[in-house]
């Protein structure tokens, strides 16, 4: 029982802390992309595509921690 509780705690911590960095990263990314779109509205299409790819990369890191959290949770 002790081990399962610790695993659940670890799972929560994993996703909580793991989501911090990607959250900041996605925020910066989208903000910068928006800045670029505002400065150069004609480049919006390219910027949006690149932004989505970048968001996917940043998000993947949070998702790794999500997977770890699931692994710990179902342990």
């Amino acid at each position: 029982m002790e081990g399962i509780n610790l695993a659940h705690l670890g799972s929560g911590l994993a996703i909580g802390i793991g989501a911090l960095g990607p959250g900041i990263g996605v925020g910066v990314l989208v903000g910068k992309a928006l800045e670029g779109m505002a400065r150069q509205p004609e480049a919006t299409g390219t910027l949006r595509t690149t932004m989505f790819i970048g968001v996917a990369f940043a998000e993947a890191i949070a998702l790794y921690s999500f997977v770890i959290a699931i692994l710990l949770f179902t342990k």
Binding site: L63, Y64, F66, V67, I70
Partner: peptide, 13 residues
């Protein structure tokens, strides 16, 4: 690997 985990984790989440 990241492709697989991204799709899987997004939908599961």
């Amino acid at each position: 690997f990241s492709l697989a985990v991204r799709l899987f984790a997004n939908l599961l989440a």
